[in-house]
Simulated assay, not measured.
Amino acid sequence: MNEQTIYRVLGSDEWAKAVALGEYQGAPHDIADGFIHFSTGETLAATLALHYAGRDHLKLLHVPVAPIEAYIKWEPARGGTLFPHLYAKLKVADVFRVDDVNLDENGVHILPEDLR
């Protein structure tokens, strides 16, 4: 499986730390699992609702698969849906776009126009 772009949600503070280091090492659950969890365009809204409910001021990283494909494994989760898992640190240079993700008045995350 090869999506052109995969997505990672993280807190603004986590992204600032990654930029300072030049790489994102993952959240504690990523480190414990041994890989960095990503979403596809199709699973992004569900990931936000399930794992980031009520969290505001998030960052959405857009990462092209091609430069990191050797370190990506597509593995089943959530009822067998395949998710991209990165078995390496994510270099900040491999992120081609970063969007802010905030909550609307109903507490629902607002995705960028092109991902709705």
Rank of each mutant, 00 (worst) to 15 (best):
E105C: 08
A18S: 08
P28C: 09
I68P: 01
Y87S: 07
L58F: 05
S12V: 07
D99A: 13
D100Q: 03
L115W: 11
P28G: 11
A45M: 12
V101L: 04
I110G: 01
L115E: 03
G11D: 13
H85R: 15
H85C: 11
G26S: 04
K91Q: 11
E23C: 07
G80D: 01
Q4L: 12
I110C: 08
P84I: 10
V65P: 01
L61Q: 01
K17T: 14
S12E: 15
I6Y: 01
R97Y: 09
A93D: 11
E69M: 14
T43N: 08
A77R: 07
G80K: 04
T43L: 08
K89V: 14
V9L: 15
R8Y: 04
V101Q: 04
M1G: 14
V108L: 10
F96R: 14
N2W: 11
S39L: 03
E23P: 01
D104N: 14
L48R: 11
Y7T: 09
P112H: 07
A53P: 00
E3C: 15
I31C: 03
R78S: 15
F38E: 00
D100H: 04
E14M: 07
L111D: 02
H29G: 06
L103G: 08
L50K: 14
D99Q: 10
R97P: 00
L60R: 07
F35E: 05
P112E: 08
T40I: 08
T47K: 03
R8I: 12
F96N: 15
S12N: 13
D100C: 10
L50F: 11
V63P: 00
D104T: 02
K91T: 03
H109T: 05
L50V: 12
V92Y: 01
K17S: 08
P76N: 13
G41E: 12
T43F: 04
V92Q: 02
L10S: 05
H37E: 02
K91P: 04
A45V: 09
D13Y: 06
F83M: 15
R55W: 04
Y24A: 11
Y87G: 10
I72Q: 02
G34S: 11
A18M: 05
L10F: 10
G22N: 06
Q25K: 14
K73D: 13
T5W: 11
G107C: 06
G41Y: 07
N106G: 09
H109R: 12
H109P: 00
M1T: 13
V98G: 02
